[in-house]
Amino acid sequence: MNPTQNAWHHIRRSPIQSLVAVLVMTISFLSLNLFVIVSNGMSDVLKYFETKPEITIFLKDGLDKTTVENLQQELTSYPGIREIKFISKDKALSLYKEQNKNNPILTEMVTASILPASFEVSVSNPTVLEQISQNFSAKKDQVDEIIYQKDIIKSLLNWTDIIRKVGIISVSVSTLITFLIISVIIGMKITNRKEEISISRLLGASNFYVKKPFLIEGIIYGLTGGFVGALSAFGLSQFFAKSINHFFSPITFISTNISFYIYLLGLSLALGSMIGFLASWLGAKRYIKF
């Protein structure tokens, strides 16, 4: 009987303990994978806002054409400017009418003279927005108001940070618990097979020879738990993907990229086998002392 067959024999001889080990490992990897999927979604949301940085500068009424052109010229001098769109009062009115086409009373009341002209500036480097905001806020006789996504990004960053911290703490705690449970289960199995181990030792088996089936057993738990946990997380995320992605539209919060899931599965298997191995190694080290 080779060590793998021996490990399988141990698993079959105490199915409840083995089931608990796989279950704990599965729950751990389910939470780990869900956390990674949500984190990835949060990053995408953040990236979306970060890669679409815009600032809108509303101008005061009554500015002459040269002043407006100067302001536009100044904006173009900033690094990383992608596009500068000037929304004249007339254009603002047509936009307003488009937005409120279902409310004719409003569109009749509002004229181009009461709507402000503005610049919509999109940049490739979001840090420049802060600079533009500060410099143009100082032009109080020309600029009426400035709006940009700083607050949205700040709030998103806060949320992402909180989710990451909570995720990392809970995944670490669950991994630690899993590690200890596997270690204790392997310890119990070693105690159950104490006689077999001591006979093998008397027959000349090395310490590693008697430990090997238990180490393989731990790796089997890790691989099974990692595989089932990852697949369950993928199944769950795909089940809710449509509604969640619709909510975050146009952002794809739940990834549909197959290679992302293959990568996650590989990571789960590698991590699972490592946790299983280390936990069983600790259990074997503690309990095999004869």
């Binding site: 009987m1 001889r13 006689e195 077999e196 006979i199 030792r201 008397l202 027959l203 000349g204 088996a205 090395s206 310490n207």
Partner: peptide, 21 residues
């Protein structure tokens, strides 16, 4: 010691056979 034991055949008084094999 493991190596030495591999060169020793033992017939134990209480047999020392593994029960589930």
């Amino acid at each position: 010691v493991d190596k030495l034991r591999r060169n020793i055949g033992v017939i134990f008084q209480d047999y020392q056979l593994i029960a589930d094999k």
